[in-house]
Simulated scan of single mutants.
Amino acid sequence: MPAQQKKIIFCIAGVLSFACALGTAAAIGTQLWVKGTILCKTGALLVNATGQELEKFIGKIQYGLLYGERVRQCGLGGRPFQFSFFPDLLKIIPASIHVSVILFCTVLIIFALVGAGFFMFNAFGSPYETLHGPVGLYLWNFIACSCGCLIMILFSSEVKIHHLSEKIANFKEGSFIFKTHSEQFANSFWIILVCSLVQFLNTLLIRFAGFEFPFSKSKDSGTVTGAADLMY
């Protein structure tokens, strides 16, 4: 492939990696990871609410990784309540999983930025070491893509398996019991999915630029000298 086309491909991949870093950083700061509704089970049972009457006991909840908001509905109108995970909810949520999600988000941002920098370096610079060449590009994208997958797996398990929404809804509730009526992942969660797919797409762009996948070369090609192995 001509050098000019390689530069264009690397520039596109670099821009995509930088966009992933910005998107992940923006996702961390929002409360649009989960949206749902919560049912005031105690209040509904007291009046035996059914049908349209049940809607008076269904509130709303939305939250992200750092903070969120819920609207408490127990038949007397909605009462909004703001909350933050640190330090308010650490005692009732699976803190190790939640902190791991934030940590992997940070790692994703870092390696997406590193990948963007190395893409630009390969496009306009003169790479000479292995980690400055295609092997390094594969490595940074693989790490970033893996972090995105881990974020989605860990956060999904926190929400679905550990019933995070119910734990938040029942936070500091004495006489009322709340149950999750419905919940769905919101925009910020899907941004992480898109970022993971973009990192995978960057891997295909590297291959499209003419560089073999790591460890895919045959043994016959191993006769070159060590200095040549560091070049491409």
Rank of each mutant, 00 (worst) to 15 (best):
A209F: 06
L205E: 03
G222F: 12
L154P: 10
F185C: 11
I177R: 13
F178E: 02
E173N: 02
E166A: 10
F189H: 10
I161H: 07
W140T: 15
S146F: 12
K217G: 09
V135L: 10
L230E: 09
H181S: 07
V224M: 13
C145N: 02
L193K: 03
Y138E: 10
L230R: 05
F185T: 07
N187H: 07
F142M: 05
Q199E: 07
L150K: 04
F119M: 15
F171M: 02
F121V: 01
T225H: 04
E173G: 03
K167P: 00
H181C: 02
A123F: 03
T225F: 02
Y138H: 05
V194D: 00
D229P: 00
F121K: 05
G222V: 00
K179F: 10
F121L: 07
T130S: 11
T223I: 04
Q184H: 13
A169S: 08
S146R: 02
G136R: 06
W190T: 00
C149M: 15
A228N: 07
L164Y: 01
V198S: 09
A123Y: 10
V194C: 02
A169Q: 01
S146C: 11
I143V: 14
K172V: 00
G174V: 06
A144M: 01
I192G: 04
L204S: 09
F171A: 03
F211D: 12
V159S: 15
C149F: 12
W190H: 07
L204E: 08
Q184E: 14
K217S: 15
M120Q: 01
L193Q: 06
I153W: 14
L150E: 05
I206L: 09
G136E: 04
S175H: 06
F176S: 13
L139C: 10
T225A: 12
V224L: 08
E158Q: 15
G117S: 08
F208R: 12
L204G: 06
R207A: 09
N202Q: 01
G210L: 03
K172L: 05
I151D: 02
N141T: 07
P127Q: 04
F119N: 15
T225D: 13
S146V: 10
H162K: 09
S196A: 14
F178Q: 00
G125V: 11
K160V: 07
Y128I: 11
N170E: 08
F155G: 04
